[in-house]
Design a protein around this nucleic acid. Structure first.
Length: 96
DNA sequence: TCGATGACTTCTT
DNA sequence: AAAGAAGCCATCG
């Protein structure tokens, strides 16, 4: 069932270390999702208990409606964002 | 069944 | 650099 994929995505998001961020594409790739859209969809549905704020887009810019909350939470974890863009070169998470 | 939508990415103009 | 289009998967009317 797709629950496994769901679970895998949640696991990957939960595996992102504090003070670090990951892109949807990376999460999708690591979790085994065929497309990053699935990650976004899963987070929108079951991401309420996950550090979804550590997941950004490929450009380092979060979604428009979440940007405010996202950047605030990231900043609280030590991730400094320039305007509404995060320095992925610096904070991007690397899979072990 | 078909068409539209969305926490996306990448290529081409 | 900025904008448009295509590709992708799941859900909803």
């Amino acid at each position: 069932m797709d629950e496994e994929l769901h679970e895998r995505i949640r696991d990957v998001v939960a595996s992102v270390p504090k003070g670090t961020v990951a892109t949807y594409g990376d999460v999708a790739k690591i979790a085994g999702a065929s497309t990053p859209r699935l990650v976004g969809r899963v987070l929108a549905e079951d991401g309420h208990d996950l550090p979804w704020h550590r997941v950004l887009r490929a450009d380092g810019t979060p979604a428009p409606h979440l940007a405010r909350e996202q950047l605030a939470r990231l900043r609280a974890e030590g991730v400094l964002a320039e305007g509404r863009r995060v320095d992925l070169r610096r904070y991007r998470w690397r899979a072990p």
